[in-house]
Nucleic acid binder design. Structure first.
Length: 826
RNA sequence: GCCCGGGUGGCGGAACUGGUAGACGCAAGGGACUUAAAAUCCCUCGAAGUUCUCUUCGUGCGAGUUCGAUUCUCGCCCCGGGCACCA
């Protein structure tokens, strides 16, 4: 029979015990309390793929520390969790295993919810939501309607990025290196109708408000700025010779407009067909376009195709100097950016330069570097810097900046051009041809056109979800669903069959968490006003553009629709690094996956949480190390032993002796230094790794303190151990609750206050001063902390180890850093 | 190519605004306890030299600024991430 000595911490019993208690007493359930300061902690909600992985463990451990810490700081903390539940894997699973996507999803949610509960995360589970719940997406459908009324939604026929394997359209952001972000299949262009959100209407605000995001990593802000890609310049019309039409171009370099020697059109440019029809160029140009389109489609991931072009036979006129400009079709001009037409200035643009060289076109210099005149008759690259204009009519002699302005003004006055702003950002295509998504709440009527489903008829429920064998075919194959009557005229009509991009759901879930059961509106305004914005958002950097940009957009839209009062959803953003093993991201294909379940069963969740926090600062990648987990486990056991060894000091609660012995003073000081260090590490940078190190140091000191016969003052030991428990509580909550109880405390730590550092206790009475000779460390002096510089200087130069190196020479200079260092220069 | 990160012991990582490089942990080696193992405790642990106490070198490489540089400046090398014909 095993003889329990009580020195081994029984995590299984303890963790189960506290999780049960939390399920009962719901200490993390919160409600708004106007007048009380709030704190909103949010981790990016998971897709219910089946089971949690190490990335989740890390993400939620970080979030839980912050939530528990802020509670101890007195904040009313909201910390919700839910499920990003629509999406393709559910449909794939349905195909593969014959389970309905809804059943698959809800089963996964049940399983993963248990896993999260087994981690002891302090969520307010009463706020849990799943985006595939009609009670969630009905409000999304309402928002869609309201956006439609505001003109922020439209339908258009465009060339879209199509993924054959997912059988759906992808947004531009979802195409990575020409492949689908989800399945890595090559995407292909396809022309179809689709619904779009006018995110470009908010381009300027999305850009300008980036400056407000001072709590975001600079990297993410930069990525968003580049994504929006605002450029200012001139839009200018070049009339086509002998025709009634013109070509509009956009340029950021109006100062080079006198250097235009040809025009390049995107191969998709609609004007080309008109220009070549019936001419000798018709066939060759058509062939060229066909080849270019094919090449574009096949384009390998990072190869930059060679620049080709072909003359269309047509000319246009530069309105500034009436020069005749040949028009080319070129494979490097993007139809999707600007106007699909580029004025080519080979002297001052590298691409145009290469093109001109290849086809032996004129290169006309119109910008010279400022300063002493330089002549470069045959440059081998374009001069792309700003400079001084030459050979540019009335604008000759002006500098680039001034000339740019003057040229735009001139064009505007003459009526053939205007100042213009172009964005790289494009509208957000939200149509998906998939089953498992929120239906777009629209009806097509032959007589009335497109009609929104009336508010009282929402939600448009996804058909087939009421029974396990309901059809989960894409909606365009579900005739029963499609057939309906027009809400306007009552005549026969057809429902829209596209569902929404799942990024729509995740663009506003953080707001719904503030009032997840609201039956009258997407968001209860009072609740939102109290809780929003999110104070700390935590997730992977892979969402730096997609999810975070869409959420910012939605926040502004919801504000303009009157649902929210905020401009930005996330005040502070922490992007955590990946969990890697053997130098590579954990993935099934690499076979280096560590299953959190196994670890939690073996070590307990507190140990796993502790290690994931200790092994690296959150923003960095975390290298998983099984032996490191042993270390974390060992540490908790050490604390457990230490507390049991000193249990008697909790029996009284008398004050410390007025005159403390040396060891007690040392421990008291270290205790308060640790409070200060841990608080600072969490507050300033979430560097839990160094916070944990600091607590380890304190524990090491306490364990090494003299035993039975020469006891530490019990009040001081009690203070130390209570501090250890309090400081560790946000990271290892089950363990700490148990220790708190074992040491005789009646209340739980959920109501505990974060310890406060006593500045008086922290002050050292002796300091170590470094003595250097010529910058090299030669001695260390233990001196009273109150020592002044003169005395220090004297002490240092008199030290025998120093004299050995000064060699009797007179010092040139003595540098004294008070209470820290003396450097004697000879 | 451009824009961000990052290169520190065998490993993960510390080092506040320039001031003891390597905290804390892991691994390794030695020892104690034990019939034995586990657990625990103690010692060593950047390199070389060494009179065992020190000395020299050492934070990707090369310069520079400084009394003093992991930290600041310039130039390069390597690794990771993002963007990439944006007119």
């Amino acid at each position: 029979m095993e003889q329990s000595t009580g020195d081994r911490y029984d995590f299984k019993t303890v963790e189960a015990k506290w999780q049960q208690q939390w399920a009962h007493t719901k200490p993390y359930k919160v409600s708004s309390e106007p007048g009380r300061k709030k704190y909103y902690v949010l981790e990016m909600f998971p897709y219910p793929s089946g089971r949690i992985h190490m990335g989740h463990v890390r993400n939620y451990s970080i979030g839980d520390v912050i939530a528990r810490y802020q509670r101890m700081r007195g904040y009313n903390v909201i910390h919700p969790m839910g499920w990003d539940a629509f999406g393709l894997p559910a449909e794939n699973a349905a195909l593969k295993r014959g389970i309905h996507p809804a059943a698959w999803t809800y089963d996964n949610i049940d399983y993963m919810r248990d896993q999260l509960k087994a981690m002891g995360l302090s969520y307010d589970w009463d706020r849990e939501l799943a985006t595939c719940d009609p009670q969630y997406y009905r409000w999304e459908q309402l928002i869609f309607q309201k956006m439609m009324e505001k003109g922020l939604v439209y339908r258009k026929k465009t060339t879209v990025n199509w993924c054959d394997s997912c059988e759906t359209v992808l947004a531009r952001e979802q195409v990575i290196d020409g492949c689908c972000w989800r399945c890595d299949q090559q995407v292909v262009p396809r022309t179809m109708h689709g619904w779009f959100f006018k995110i470009t209407a908010y381009a300027d605000e999305l850009l300008d408000d980036l400056d407000k995001l001072t709590g975001w990593p600079e990297k993410v802000v930069t990525m968003q700025r580049n994504w929006i890609g605002k450029s200012e310049g001139l839009a200018c019309d070049f009339p086509v010779e002998g025709r009634d039409t013109g070509i509009t171009i956009f340029t950021t370099r109006p100062d080079t407009i006198f250097g235009v020697t040809f025009m390049s059109l995107a191969v998709e440019h609609p004007l080309i067909e008109e220009l070549i029809a019936g001419t000798e160029h018709e066939q060759p140009v058509r062939d060229f376009i066909a080849a270019a389109l094919l090449e574009k489609q096949r384009k390998a991931v990072d190869e930059e195709p060679e620049k080709h072009g072909i003359f269309t036979g047509a000319y246009c006129i530069n309105p500034f100097n009436n020069e005749r400009i040949p028009i080319f079709a070129a494979n490097f001009v993007l139809m999707e950016y600007g106007t699909g037409a580029v004025m080519a200035v080979p002297a001052h643009d590298q691409r145009d330069y290469e093109f001109a060289r290849k086809y032996e076109l004129t290169i006309k210099t119109v910008i010279q570097p400022a300063g002493p005149e330089t002549v470069d008759p045959h440059p081998d690259e374009a001069f792309v810097e700003p400079g001084v204009l030459v050979d540019s009519g009335n604008f000759t002699g002006m500098d680039s900046a001034a000339a740019g302005k003057a040229i735009i003004e001139h064009a505007a006055r003459e009526g053939f051009g205007r100042a213009h702003i172009t964005y790289r950002l494009r509208d957000w295509g939200v149509s998906r041809q998939r089953y498992w998504g929120a239906p777009i709440p629209v009806i097509h009527c032959d007589r009335c056109g497109i009609v929104g489903v009336p508010e009282k008829e929402l939600p448009v429920v996804l058909p087939g979800t009421d029974s396990p064998d309901g059809s989960h075919a894409p909606l365009h194959q579900q005739e029963e669903f499609i057939r309906t009557s027009c809400p306007a005229c009552g005549g026969p009509a057809r429902r829209e069959t596209d569902t929404m991009d799942t990024f729509v759901e995740s663009s506003w879930y953080f707001a719904r968490y503030t009032s997840p059961d609201c039956r009258t509106a997407p968001i209860d305004k009072d609740e939102a006003r109290y809780w929003l914005p999110v104070d700390q958002y935590i997730g992977g950097v892979e969402h730096a553009i997609l999810h975070l940009l869409y959420s910012r957009f939605f926040t502004k839209v919801l504000r303009d629709l009157g649902y929210l009062d905020i401009d930005e959803p996330f005040r502070n953003l922490l992007t955590q690094g990946m969990v890697i093993k053997d130098g590579a991201k954990m993935s099934k294909s690499k076979g280096n996956v560590v299953d959190p379940n196994d670890l939690i069963n073996k070590y307990g969740t507190d140990t796993v949480r502790l290690f994931s926090l200790f092994a690296a600062p959150p923003e960095r990648d975390l290298e998983w190390n099984a032996q490191g987990v042993d270390g974390a486990s060992r540490f908790l056991n050490k604390v457990h032993r230490l507390i049991h060894a000193h249990k008697q000091c909790f029996s009284g609660n008398g004050p410390a002796a007025a005159q403390l012995d040396e060891s007690s003073r040392l421990l008291h000081r270290k205790t308060h230094q640790t409070i200060s260090k841990v608080t600072d590490d969490i507050e300033s940078s979430f560097h839990f790794n160094t916070a944990i190190s600091a607590v380890m140091e304190l524990v090491n000191l306490a364990s090494s303190m003299p035993g039975e016969n020469r006891k530490i003052d019990p009040a001081i030991m009690r203070e130390c151990l209570e501090t250890v428990i309090l400081l560790l509580f946000p990271m290892v909550p089950h363990f700490c609750e148990e220790m708190w109880q074992v040491t005789g405390h009646e209340s739980t730590l959920d109501n505990a206050q974060w310890p406060v550092c006593d500045a008086k206790a922290v002050a050292e009475d002796a300091v170590t001063v470094i003595v250097q000779v010529n910058g090299k460390v030669r001695a260390r002096l233990e001196v009273p902390a109150a020592i002044d510089d003169d005395e220090l200087r004297k002490l240092a130069s008199g030290d025998e180890r120093v004299i050995k190196f000064t060699d009797g020479k007179e010092p040139k200079k003595i540098i004294v850093v008070p209470k820290k260092l003396v450097n004697i220069v000879i």
